[in-house]
Each structure stands twice: as structure tokens, then as C-alpha cells.
């Protein structure tokens, strides 16, 4: 097998996204298991602080792709930079976080290198010296175990699934020269939510609402605030216009893997269940004792969310003091 593991990190405005620590930690574990090296890749413009920070997660080498053309993410520039930096013999495995940016970059880079790509993996194992990637399909209704017989191999790993492990290291930082001319695309505007809302795919806890909310998400927002949780929604709640598309959990929305998923007034359509079934613990609160959601839940409460949720919020606040 080809040598070395490469973990491609992701930053925005000089701050790592959480998945960067996840890919670096997983890369370290796999490199140790194979007795090979881990290279962490940081990309952007002015990335010295990030190249220093990622050393906390145990790379043997840091590849800093530092160029003004990489200041804002554009897939053509990032693909080209990665292709130049990773030219030559392919490593045994390239890891990347399956965020919006990571999926986009992984897909284009895989096509550039004609490389097998296991998208949105939730586990990577070594069996008889070969990588076996587990990836949900059909929004999580099916788990596929796939292999990529030949390098280059790319695995985009689902955020919020792999364990973060700090392993402070002293790694050499290499800064290869990059030639990035003629990038055809330009970022003309960025409109970011600065309210500090927690992104669904990165949230440890999600409080989610469906048709049973009748469009009133206030009690869910209050519970979410008390828990430090993100607020999600079912497709019907989004179709009703009660919540934004970005909040939708399900096979045609976001597939999430929090440690705790609280489904409020969600009956449990198959496509919704697919999108949240990899949550560690599921709580369902619904008026209808026959709602399909209860078959997928760990804990169930039959009752009116408008009576129960405010009391849950009070109890959580009391607990957290």
C-alpha cells in the first residue's frame, strides 16, 4: 500500500472548523495503525497560526498551502492547490471533512485525480491491511461498506462523528510554492449569520420540530437555548414556511448525528427518520401514541409539547443552575 495519511483541514476566516480536529485525530489513529506518517494540510491565506495550532493533534508534518488566491474558498483554486501540493505518488489515504466545502472540494479533487472517493463516511476501519469505509446511503436507511482498491483514495468523513484526540507534536511545516493563475470564479458577497447559532451538522444536541408545532417554535427555541442546542425541523415544517430550508433534517435535507435529538411534534416520516437515525439518543415528544417516531426513539413522551417543553426547559435550567 502507498505510504502516508493526509488530513485536509478546513478553516473559515482564520478559525478551524471542528471537523479539522476530527480528520487530524482520525488520521493520527490510522497512521499509527499502519505504522506510517500523518501529514496535515492547512489551506488559506496567512495560515501560520493554523499550521501551529494543528500540531496539537499529532501530525508528523504540516503542509501549509498559503496563497492570496486561497483567502476565500473557491473550488477551482482549492482543487488546483491541493493537486499541486499532492502531486506525485499518492498517499495511502486522503481524509477530508464532509462539510459543504469539503464535499465540494473532495468531489472535484477526486475527479481531477481520477480517485475513488468514499463520501460522508461515518467509520473507517483497517481489515487485513485494507481500509473499509462505512458510509450511509439513502439518507441513512442503508449503511454501505466500501473499499477503494487503488490509491489515490479519498474519504470525506461526516462531521461530528469521529473522536477528537489531542496529541501535541512538533511537526515541520512545509510551505510549497503554488502557481494559481487564471482562477475563473470570484466571491462577490458573503452573507454570514453572526447570531452565533449552532450549525445543525456540528451540534451535539438538536431540538427539532414538525407539524405538531403548528408553526410555533418558541418553546423549542427556549429549550435549545437552555441546552446549548441547535434547532431543526421536519420537511413538513419547512414546506409550511415555518422554518428555513437550512433547518431541515431528513433524506432531502441535512443528515445529522448529534448525541441527543429531541423530536417535538414530529410524526416520523420515513425520510425524516433516515436523516436523524444515526443520533446517539433520540427523545420523541408527540401527542399521538401511535406516531412512527416512537419506534425509532430511545425515550418517548406522549403529550402536548406546549405543556411539556416549557417544564423541560425549567428543569434543564434548574439542573444547570
Amino acid at each position: 500500500m502507498a505510504e502516508g495519511i493526509v488530513a485536509v483541514t478546513e478553516q473559515r476566516d482564520g478559525t478551524f472548523r471542528k471537523v479539522s480536529y476530527e480528520v487530524a485525530s482520525e488520521g493520527r489513529r490510522l497512521a499509527d495503525a499502519l505504522g506510517t506518517t500523518l501529514t496535515a494540510v492547512v489551506m488559506g491565506s496567512g495560515v501560520d497560526p493554523l499550521a501551529a495550532e494543528i500540531q496539537q493533534y499529532g501530525p508528523d508534518r504540516v503542509l501549509a498551502l498559503d496563497h492570496p488566491e486561497l483567502a476565500d474558498y473557491r473550488v477551482e483554486a482549492y482543487t488546483e492547490a491541493l493537486a499541486q501540493a499532492l502531486a506525485g505518488d499518492p498517499p495511502a489515504l486522503i481524509l477530508i471533512g464532509a462539510t459543504v466545502q469539503g464535499k465540494d472540494l473532495a468531489a472535484r479533487f477526486a475527479a481531477r485525480r481520477d480517485a475513488g472517493l468514499a463520501m460522508d463516511c461515518t467509520a473507517i476501519e483497517l481489515r487485513d491491511g485494507a481500509f473499509v469505509f462505512t458510509r450511509p446511503m439513502f439518507g441513512g436507511k442503508i449503511l454501505a461498506e466500501v473499499t477503494i482498491p487503488e490509491a489515490p483514495r479519498i474519504a470525506a468523513v461526516r462531521p461530528n462523528v469521529l473522536r477528537i484526540e489531542r496529541r501535541p507534536a512538533q511537526a515541520a511545516v512545509a510551505k510549497p510554492a503554488l502557481a494559481l493563475q487564471g482562477i475563473p470564479t470570484a466571491v462577490v458577497e458573503k452573507r454570514m449569520d453572526t447570531s452565533g447559532r449552532i450549525e445543525l451538522t456540528e451540534a451535539d444536541i438538536i431540538v427539532s420540530g414538525g407539524r405538531g408545532t403548528g408553526g410555533n417554535f418558541a418553546p423549542l427555541e427556549e429549550l435549545a437555548a437552555a441546552l446549548g442546542a441547535a434547532v431543526g425541523a421536519s420537511r413538513s415544517a419547512v414546506d409550511e414556511g415555518w422554518r428555513k430550508h437550512a433547518d431541515q433534517v431528513g433524506q432531502t435535507g441535512k443528515v445529522v448525528s448529534p448525541t441527543l435529538y429531541v423530536a417535538c411534534g414530529i410524526s416520523g416520516a420515513i425520510q425524516h427518520l433516515a436523516g436523524m437515525s444515526s443520533s446517539k439518543v433520540i427523545v420523541a415528544i408527540n401527542k399521538d401514541p401511535d406516531a412512527p417516531i416512537f419506534a425509532k426513539a430511545d425515550y418517548g413522551v406522549v403529550g402536548d409539547i406546549f405543556q411539556i417543553l416549557p417544564k423541560v426547559t425549567e428543569a434543564v435550567k434548574a439542573l444547570k443552575g
Partner: peptide, 21 residues
């Protein structure tokens, strides 16, 4: 194919729901 499917599985079943009243 660059990516070869070795097996398809169903997600692990959950234990029966515990109702809280």
C-alpha cells in the same frame, strides 16, 4: 468502479422505546 461495495447493511436496531409518563 473505483469504489467497490463490499456489503450493504441496515442500521443497527435500537432498543425498544422507554416511555416516560
Amino acid at each position: 468502479r473505483k469504489v467497490v461495495v463490499r456489503a450493504l447493511k441496515l442500521p443497527p436496531a435500537r432498543q425498544a422505546v422507554r416511555m416516560i409518563g
